[in-house]
Amino acid sequence: MYKSQLFLAIAATLVVSGAANAFDGDSSNTSNVAVGVSTVNAPPFHYPNRAGIAVNSSGLTNFVDFESLKNYGSSNNSTVDWGTHTVYELNFPYTGAPEDHDNLGVFSFAQAGDGDVWFGEWSAYGTSDATRTVYYSGLNEDTSIPGSISVPVEATYNVVGINNYDPTSGGNLLSGQFDATFYGVTGTLTGDIENASGFNINIGNATISATAVISSSNAVASDTGGTLASSGTVSGRFFNSYADLAGIVDFSGTQYDTAFGGSVAD
């Protein structure tokens, strides 16, 4: 179902509830990375009350907004299934950064849709080290879902995934589509994303709760040689009246953990 059809279905079947600009997010390792509403207020460099991130070296309660962070890193447009997608990379220390920022680590993140919804990965020294953590962070979460058991609402999302991001090889982004079926009190989300090397994440048969939370415990990571990891935990959410989604897939260890985000297909 295309975006305009989804919105018409929502208008016909649902009165959207929930606090405006409410936050949701998750991290695969909360000792390394926390997500929350930004608290650092230092215009014009950082602003409060946006989707934010905090890392252990600067204090896990000092949330910095992604909207500002993207201005200090490099951006790369990587080819995916439906065109291009931009990933922002910020590797500390960088020229001009304050000295107390030297140990803030390596950030690779992207935006889901046009709203204040972000997903990505962080590590202390680079993607291959054991501190690698995936996360999502967003405002304007949805807290109910459209449709009914007798008249479900269906939607397809264009989704990208970040796993061991490498800008020198075209970003190594995963991409694909997730299919959502909303029944008002529950729902399902299925699909997979894959990169040019054949690395694939299948989220399994994920459940959508009545409050628009995405969850699963049967995600699978694979490549052209077969299964790499199974029983991955999916954690995610819908945002902006179901226009966008974001989440993470967490396996045992860190190598195959993946952050994902996307928007309703046009």
Rank of each mutant, 00 (worst) to 15 (best):
Asp116Glu: 15
Val117Phe: 06
Val117Asn: 03
Val117Lys: 05
Trp118Gly: 10
Gly120Gln: 05
Glu121Trp: 03
Glu121Cys: 09
Ala124Tyr: 09
Ala124Ile: 05
Ser128Pro: 00
Asp129Phe: 08
Asp129Thr: 08
Ala130Ile: 11
Ala130Gly: 12
Ala130Val: 12
Thr131Ser: 15
Arg132Gln: 11
Thr133Gly: 10
Val134Lys: 08
Tyr135Asp: 03
Tyr136Arg: 04
Gly138Gln: 03
Asn140Val: 01
Glu141Gly: 13
Glu141Trp: 00
Asp142Trp: 05
Ile145Gln: 10
Pro146Asp: 08
Pro146His: 11
Gly147Leu: 08
Ser148Glu: 06
Ser150Met: 11
Ser150Trp: 02
Val151Gly: 00
Val151Tyr: 03
Pro152Asn: 10
Pro152Met: 06
Val153Ala: 12
Thr156Asp: 15
Thr156Gly: 08
Tyr157Ser: 11
Val160Asp: 05
Val160Lys: 10
Val160His: 04
Val160Pro: 10
Asn164Glu: 13
Asn164Gly: 08
Tyr165Glu: 07
Thr168Gln: 05
Ser169Gln: 12
Gly170Cys: 07
Gly171Met: 05
Leu174Pro: 00
Leu174Ala: 02
Ser175Lys: 06
Thr181His: 01
Thr181Ile: 14
Thr181Gly: 00
Phe182Asn: 05
Phe182Met: 04
Tyr183Thr: 12
Gly184His: 09
Val185His: 01
Leu189Asp: 05
Leu189Trp: 05
Leu189Ile: 14
Thr190Tyr: 06
Thr190Ser: 06
Asp192Gly: 07
Asp192Met: 05
Asp192Asn: 14
Ile193Val: 15
Ile193Pro: 04
Ile193Asn: 04
Glu194Arg: 13
Asn195Thr: 09
Ala196Phe: 09
Ala196Lys: 12
Ala196Val: 13
Ser197Ile: 01
Gly198Phe: 10
Phe199Pro: 01
Asn200Phe: 00
Asn200Ala: 01
Ile201Gln: 13
Ile201Glu: 12
Asn202Pro: 03
Asn205Glu: 14
Asn205Gly: 02
Ala206Asn: 10
Ile208Pro: 10
Ser209Lys: 08
Ala210Gln: 09
Ala210Glu: 12
Ala210Phe: 03
Ala212Pro: 02
Val213Lys: 13
Val213Asp: 13
Ile214Met: 07
Ser215Phe: 03
Ser215Ala: 15
Ser216Tyr: 04
Ser216Asn: 15
Ser217Ile: 13
Ser217Tyr: 11
Ser222Tyr: 02
Asp223Lys: 07
Asp223Ile: 10
Asp223Glu: 11
Thr227Asp: 04
Thr227Ala: 06
Thr227Leu: 03
Thr227Phe: 03
Thr227Gly: 02
Ala229Tyr: 01
Gly232Gln: 04
Thr233Asp: 09
Val234Gly: 07
Ser235Leu: 04
